Amino acid sequence: MPAYFLVNITVRDPAKFEQYRQAVPAVIAKFGGRYIVRGGAVEVLEGDPGLDRVVILEFPDAAAARAFYASEDYAPLLALRLSATEGSMALVEGLPG
């Protein structure tokens, strides 16, 4: 069953974030992940979700998503992202295929 990272961030240091943005796609792909949404325009239709830069990543399953997040490959990029942004990230299981 697929799993998704739902990410909402506000970029505080654009130069550092650009380094992250350039490097992370290869690491995501290494763990079978792919972008579903990558920072496109947000049109709020109801409520105030507090969304800024929204990213949705799909992985084959939750184990692959967790392996990506905990990997030695991602660790320095995670540190870079955390130093350049503020926000939230959640792992959500999808529906069976």
Rank of each mutant, 00 (worst) to 15 (best):
Y4T: 11
D73A: 01
G33K: 00
V54A: 08
E93W: 09
R81W: 03
F31H: 13
E46R: 10
L91H: 08
P2M: 12
A70N: 09
V55M: 08
A15R: 14
R34S: 03
L80D: 04
R12P: 10
F17P: 05
Q19C: 11
P2L: 10
A65Y: 01
A84F: 09
D52M: 04
Q19P: 04
S83M: 01
F31L: 08
L77N: 02
E72D: 02
L80C: 02
L45T: 15
R53F: 02
L51N: 02
R53D: 06
S83Y: 05
V44M: 05
F5P: 11
R53H: 06
A29C: 09
T10G: 11
F5T: 12
A90C: 14
D52Q: 15
P76L: 00
Y69A: 08
A15V: 14
L51I: 04
G32D: 05
K16C: 06
R12S: 12
P76F: 07
G94Q: 13
Y35T: 05
A23M: 02
V42M: 08
E46S: 12
A23T: 10
G94M: 08
G97E: 14
T85A: 01
G33M: 01
D73F: 07
E43D: 15
F59I: 08
F68N: 00
G97M: 15
A90V: 15
Q19T: 13
M89D: 10
A3Y: 03
P25V: 02
G87C: 04
A70Y: 07
V37K: 10
N8K: 02
P14V: 12
V92F: 11
D61C: 07
L57I: 11
R21F: 14
L6I: 15
R12N: 15
M1F: 12
Y69R: 06
E58H: 06
A84R: 00
G40C: 03
G94H: 08
A75N: 13
L6W: 10
R21P: 12
M1Q: 13
G94N: 13
F17G: 14
T85K: 05
E58N: 00
L6F: 15
G40Q: 11
V7E: 02
D73Y: 00
A62G: 04
L77F: 06
V44I: 09
A79E: 02
R53P: 04
A63S: 10
A64K: 09
P96C: 09
A26S: 00
P14E: 14
V27N: 05
Q19G: 12
R38L: 03
R34A: 00
R53W: 07
D48F: 02
R38H: 05
V42R: 09
P2E: 07
L95M: 11
A84N: 01
A15K: 15
K16V: 12
R12D: 13
E93C: 03
E72K: 03
V27S: 00
A84W: 06
E18K: 11
A75G: 10
A3M: 08
G87M: 08
N8T: 01
P49G: 09
G40L: 01
E58Q: 11
Y20C: 07
V55S: 07
D52I: 04
D73T: 01
G50C: 08
D48E: 13
A15C: 05
V44D: 08
